[in-house]
Design a protein around this nucleic acid. Structure first.
Lengths: 214, 214
DNA sequence: ATGTATCCATACGCCAGAGTATGGAAAACC
DNA sequence: GGTTTTCCATACTCTGGCGTATGGATACAT
């Protein structure tokens, strides 16, 4: 359930509740006003669905059942929103990466987990996929670069722990990450088996066999 | 050297030539009028440089030193241009694929050539890279699907010739193609070594070693 | 209770690109 | 040599998003 449905509906609901409660004030945590964070979250959802170029102020406002009057109170402009949203996403992704892979001892399991995690954290991956599509965008590019390097470093050190020398570990990490990126691309083209199907499992097994030593 | 520089310059040049030749008519193959093909070619170049979403009529016309009055004589609209340009690209890519890989007997050499060819045919690959970024666009999607299938089929049959059973050959083909797609993505992010460097060669060798059964 | 700070709606002006209408110039035709 | 095609320029209208200005409403403080 969404925290905030469209503003119009929400306000109507509030009025009804207030009427039924004989005009008593709404509870405090049921805020009827939006925060910058709300805008950023919706922005990321929109990016996940329609891509970076679709992130426009007025459409986003309509989607939230509100007008841009609100937006320009919280943000200086479109650029600002994108900046904040990307930063939020990048931090979230960083925490995500560390908590998912940081506590796994065996490097091989870490690598396997890397692939298996593609299915989980749907929103995050969808956003990333759309960010990749928007490479070249001045605000997106640096984020993409940092994230890719961060992730490849993880992969690289895991491969080193498995006995590869540094150079080959780096190559293998790049190769592995390329496979991941290519998978995202094929997914965007609807050319990948459903994530919960047997064929997908078999394919993942194949990938792991050929990419992860022993 | 470009076939057609900007129209204005071209026309000026023509006038000078005509003057110098005492108003004799220009040679026939030095056409001073544009054809639909010219528009399509410029469109593909623009896509290669700035992506599909940057393909707009007026900017393209400006780029060609002409006005959109010409465009709407040759095409019914933006959609039509994109349609034609994509079709032209798809056919070109098909011929390309067959001539580059069709005449190589050894399947292993075909696969190696597949990777090596990434460096050549720059325009074609740049266009493809931008098309991938525009997956989801209704006119681009089917093209992407057909091209990817066509290419993966090539890979798959090469792997079969190398002794893999059909299922594994398909998996290996998808995996290999994913690597290719991921490479294009990293290239779009400027995270890949220059195509002519030694590190690139070493990396390619690594990729071939791990993906192609000896 | 009244004033102040927050948050949002409405109504503007601006710009860029899409598509249309129409006329003009050059070339081709007969 | 005059007519007909072919190709392009110019001048519109229309749409959609950006950013601003301003006032209204609600909550909060004192």
């Amino acid at each position: 359930m969404r925290n905030l449905t469209t503003k119009a509906v929400h306000l109507a609901a509030v009025k009804i509740l207030e009427f039924e409660a004989r005009m008593s004030p709404a509870k405090k945590n049921e805020r009827n006003t939006l925060s910058a964070e709300d805008w950023e979250r919706e922005a990321l959802e929109l990016i996940a669905e329609q891509g970076v170029q679709a992130l426009a102020v007025e459409p986003l406002a309509r989607r939230m059942g509100i007008t841009k009057g609100s937006f320009y109170w919280h943000f200086s402009g479109r650029e600002s929103l994108l900046e904040q949203a990307l930063q939020r996403w990048e931090e979230h992704d960083g925490r995500n990466l560390n908590q998912a892979l940081g506590e796994i001892d065996q490097p091989r399991d870490r690598l396997v987990s890397f692939f298996r995690r593609v299915g989980k954290e749907k929103l995050t991956h969808e956003v990333y996929s759309e960010l990749c599509a928007a490479a070249g965008h001045p605000q997106v590019e640096p984020v993409l670069e940092r994230v890719a390097n961060r992730r490849m470093k993880h992969l690289s050190s895991a491969f080193e722990e498995l006995g590869l020398d540094p150079v080959n570990a780096r190559y293998q990490a790049r190769l592995t990450y390329s496979v991941y990126l290519g998978f995202l691309q094929l997914q965007r083209q609807h050319q990948t088996p459903s994530l919960s199907s047997e064929e997908f499992e078999a394919y993942i097994e194949h990938v792991i066999r050929t990419l992860i030593p022993s």
